[in-house]
């Protein structure tokens, strides 16, 4: 695999902790496991990905295990097991792209969101605290079967974890018929991931970070798919109310500086800007943001619904 730089990036698994890679089979169909599974610690991920490890560090990344299989010249399968600090992080990595064919590899998910997606030779899955990519260099029927078999081996013994509470709490509809685009819901902790899903600012104006739970999603008005009928929400749960207040104030200063100071002090902003109505609302350790709303009433409805979702997520946590 051209993006792998094994010499400088990894260490032998011989002395490592108990690994997920150890549970993988010696063969999957005609693909045989190649000796020398590798372990990549966070400090080495930039070497492994030639300077693109930010995605994994943007979640709570623990380590990466890499195993390769080969059936013949040019017929390889690369298995990457990203061990995260929690199941929410693994889910978050999967939620960056809901495209592909949903497949069930082990236990049935506790909700109607897939935990494994296959497309063009690549299987992505979230199983417990593991996010995995299993990719065949050349997609054939045999390679597909082998990729799925390896996916089943990774998922074995791990019941699919519940979706992050914030994702589960997203309301299916808001206001006058705006419906959640299910393929847009992305769980995140970093402004880099937020910007990949929906560009807000080059700077981290919401003070996101590893201690923060956040979700962004798009809502469309049915039968009106133009940009003007989309609403974007960002819901953030901070570790404490003080940080939420500071983040709210920072967002107002950077993004909605025209908002009246009085409204901001009261914890709610709703104001017209270039691409529609925008708003933010804060309560305790939660901040809800609504963007590109067609009118004030819609923005207000989304802020109320967003805050309710945050409170639901908080309640289920307790």
């Amino acid at each position: 695999m051209s993006h792998v730089n094994p010499a400088s990036a990894s260490s032998s698994l011989a002395t490592a902790r108990e690994t997920a890679a150890a549970r993988l089979p010696e063969a999957a169909g005609t693909f045989r496991r190649i000796e020398g599974a590798r372990l990549v610690e966070p400090a080495a991920i930039f070497d492994y990905m030639d300077g693109a490890g930010e995605l994994y560090l943007a979640y709570r990344f623990d380590h990466l295990e890499v195993v390769e299989y080969r059936a013949g010249e040019g017929d390889d399968i690369l298995v990457e097991l990203y061990r995260m600090r929690g199941a929410d992080d693994a889910f978050g990595l999967l939620s960056g792209d809901w495209g592909g064919e949903p497949v069930v590899l082990g236990g049935k998910p506790p909700d109607d969101r897939p935990r494994a997606l296959y497309g063009a030779g690549l299987l992505r899955l979230a199983a417990g605290d593991t996010y995995a990519r299993v990719m065949a260099t050349r997609e054939t029927p045999a390679a597909r079967e082998a990729v799925l078999a390896l996916g089943r081996a990774i998922a074995a013994g791990r019941d699919p974890a519940p979706a992050p509470r914030l994702v589960a709490a997203l309301p299916p509809t808001v206001g006058a018929g705006h419906a959640l685009r299910r393929d847009s819901a992305c769980f995140l902790r970093s402004h880099l991931v937020l910007n990949s899903a929906y560009f807000l600012s080059r700077q981290n104006i919401l003070d996101l970070g590893p201690e923060v739970d956040a979700v962004t999603a798009r809502y469309d008005r049915p039968a009106a798919a133009s940009d003007a009928n989309r609403v974007r929400v960002v819901l953030v749960a901070y570790p404490d109310a003080d940080r939420a207040r500071r983040a709210f104030d920072g967002f107002r200063a950077a993004y909605l500086p025209e908002a009246p100071a009085g409204a901001a002090a009261a914890g709610t902003i709703v104001t017209p800007i270039e691409d529609g109505w925008a708003g933010a609302r804060r309560a305790d350790r939660a901040v809800a943001i609504a963007l590109e709303c067609p009118d004030r009433a819609t923005a207000t409805a989304f802020l109320a619904a967003g805050l309710a979702a945050l409170q639901t997520a908080e309640a289920t946590h307790e």
Partner: peptide, 8 residues
């Protein structure tokens, strides 16, 4: 996307 290839 990236940082890794998604063949789709």
């Amino acid at each position: 996307k990236g940082p890794q290839v998604d063949p789709r």
